[in-house]
């Protein structure tokens, strides 16, 4: 009994370590990808000096950030000033806990699920953690004791609170289809009945827009509107604390890509084929599934970047109008139609 618990803890710790380091590495290279994508969309080449194709650029950037001088403003509230970026990072990393990365591996004679925790409130857990992500911004912005930071923090927070609502409503239709909040069940349901994007296109669009807003990405990066707020909520931050904020944004982006592929694009499912009938080993299947999942997530990350370098920033009243007057009614409409259709089909 005790031994199984011990092994379970070891297994989960390993998995957590793996996923956290994966998120970190992906976030690192997302900064590189962002610059490359931006460059390519603007007919440039982008970073290509550090290593071949500039592949060592993220390391150089990280090293630079580490060696920069740490500045903590005298008039700031010191503890909260440090807590801010920590919270941003923690909440960004926490989200990945409930994501089913792939089918179980088969190691040492037992199945090892590639999911840290298959709790029965999976999707709500993500919502909970995302809603806490505001605190990193708010605390950091307030503790800096700078008016621009505070304004940006208030903007970011109100934006995130506003867009959580249509985000949740957009998912309700999907949850009606599945009838379970568990992430693994949501993915399994898609493998059996086809991807949710077919049934819930409107829900996906609303969810996608809200995900952009939740990640503070352009066109909703009002919290970092440098022409109005100088630099946004991390104005007073320097060195790695600033790095944490920027990093957290990229981790959030990656995770939201993963969540979107889990919810709407079948997670680790390969479309149009029945991979179980290939007759390859379970481990190989799991790895293929994982790679498929990553591919989908990276695609969404790319779309995020593509949008950032295409669309200008919204004005603040436009942002609120879009959230409350367009997205909420759309999401409600989607939910009601889905509910009616399900009711009609069941009769």
């Amino acid at each position: 009994m005790l031994l199984t618990i011990f092994w379970l803890v070891i297994e989960k710790l390993l998995l957590i370590g793996l996923i956290v380091s994966l998120s970190m590495v992906v976030a690192m290279y997302a900064t590189y990808a962002e610059r490359k994508v931006a460059a390519f969309l603007q007919d440039r080449i982008g970073p290509n000096r550090a290593g071949i194709f500039g592949l060592l650029q993220p390391l150089a950037d990280g090293g630079k950030l580490f060696f920069k001088e740490e500045i903590i403003p005298l008039a700031s509230s010191k503890f909260l000033f440090i807590l801010g970026p920590c919270l941003a990072m923690i909440t960004a990393l926490l989200t990945s806990a409930v994501i089913p990365w792939s089918t179980p591996l088969h190691l040492f004679g037992q199945d090892v699920p590639l999911q840290v925790a298959d709790i029965n409130i999976g999707i709500l857990f993500i919502f909970g953690v995302v809603s806490l992500g505001v605190y990193g911004i708010m605390i950091g912005g307030w503790a800096s004791n700078n008016k621009f930071s505070l304004l940006a923090a208030v903007r970011g927070a109100s934006q995130m609170v506003s867009y959580e609502l249509p985000m949740g409503l957009a998912l309700l239709g999907l949850l009606l289809l599945v009838g379970d909040l568990r992430m693994s069940v949501i993915v399994q349901n898609q493998i059996e009945h086809g991807w949710h994007i077919i049934y819930q296109p409107l829900g996906f669009i609303v969810f996608f827009i809200c995900a952009l807003a939740e990640c503070n990405r352009t066109p909703f990066d009002l919290a970092e509107a440098e022409n109005e707020l100088n630099f946004g909520y991390h104005q007073e931050y320097s060195s790695m604390k600033l790095g944490f904020y920027l990093f957290a944004e990229y981790i959030n982006m990656f995770i939201s890509g993963v969540v979107m592929s889990c919810l709407f694009f079948g997670g680790y499912d390969i479309p149009f084929v029945n991979e179980a009938s290939w007759g390859i080993s379970q481990n190989a299947l799991a790895i293929i599934g994982f790679l498929v999942m990553l591919t989908k997530a990276f695609f969404f990350v790319f779309v995020f970047m593509w949008i950032r370098w295409t669309i200008p920033r919204f004005r603040y009243d436009q942002l609120m109008n879009l959230g409350w007057k367009k997205l909420v009614p759309l999401a409600l409409f989607n939910m009601i139609v889905t509910a009616a259709v399900i009711l009609w089909l069941k009769k």
């Binding site: 709500l124 857990f125 919502f127 909970g128 809603s131 806490l132 609170v161 959580e164």
Partner: peptide, 11 residues
Amino acid sequence: AIVNIIVYAGA
């Protein structure tokens, strides 16, 4: 638990 966090702590 999670609703408590979403609604109270988060909003």
